[in-house]
């Protein structure tokens, strides 16, 4: 519709001029004068815009871009700092952990060694006490066994003297006692 109207307007320039299409009316000086004034106004607008108005806008935009870049940079630096601090913290924690572990192991080892030493001395003392006691028991038993033959011989002589009203040769008694003792030795030993 628009195109049709346009074609009509352009296809009939003569008719349009006859009807008075004001845009093509060059009889009046206003058609050309508006172009001259238009050029002056446009040039003025261009000068004011390019010299004063637009640089101000550009300045503000650049300022903002710079501010944003600066803030981003600061944020990045702060993040790096924080990361370094966290790394330092982790390292220190790990170190402290390891140190504590070592100290625990060391004192544990020392305590174990001390305990083992104490146990060893105690055992040694107990062993020597036991050995001494056993020796004393041995000696006592030997003494007791040694006395047993004599007692038995004397008893046997006394029994014979009382029963048979005579005496017996002491070595015969001794031999009999010794044989009897020898027969029982396994039980006494």
């Amino acid at each position: 519709m628009r195109a049709l109207l346009l074609a009509l307007l352009l296809a009939l320039p003569a008719a349009a001029r006859a009807e008075g299409m004001p845009q093509l009316d060059f009889k009046t000086p206003l058609t050309v004068s508006q172009v001259v004034w238009g050029a002056i106004i446009f040039a003025l607008l261009y000068v004011i815009a390019s010299r004063a108005a637009l640089p101000k806008v550009g300045e503000v935009l650049e300022e903002r871009a710079a501010r944003i870049a600066r803030d981003l940079e600061a944020a990045r630096a702060a993040k790096e700092e924080a990361d370094a601090a966290v790394a330092e913290l982790t390292r220190a924690t790990r170190e402290a952990h390891a140190g504590a572990q070592a100290q625990i192991a060391e004192s544990l080892g020392a305590a174990k060694a001390r305990a083992a030493e104490q146990a060893a001395t105690l055992n040694a003392r107990l062993d020597s006490d036991i050995a001494a006691a056993e020796q004393r028991i041995h000696a006592a038993r030997r003494a007791a066994l040694g006395a047993l033959g004599q007692v038995a011989g004397e008893t046997a002589q006394a029994v014979v003297a009382r029963l048979a009203a005579g005496t017996v040769a002491p070595d015969m008694v001794d031999r009999a006692v010794a044989a009897a003792l020898a027969a029982r030795r396994p039980q006494l030993a």
Binding site: S33, I41, F42, I48, A49, K56
Partner: peptide
């Protein structure tokens, strides 16, 4: 000087453009 109403509206249009830039950028806000 044959200053037409067409030129008057050119001046108004130009003034509006400059006003938009001037009053818009006056706060210079971040």
């Amino acid at each position: 000087v044959n200053f037409t109403q067409s030129n008057l509206f050119m001046v108004i249009a130009g003034a509006l453009v400059l006003a938009l830039l001037y009053y818009g950028m006056r706060p210079r806000a971040m």
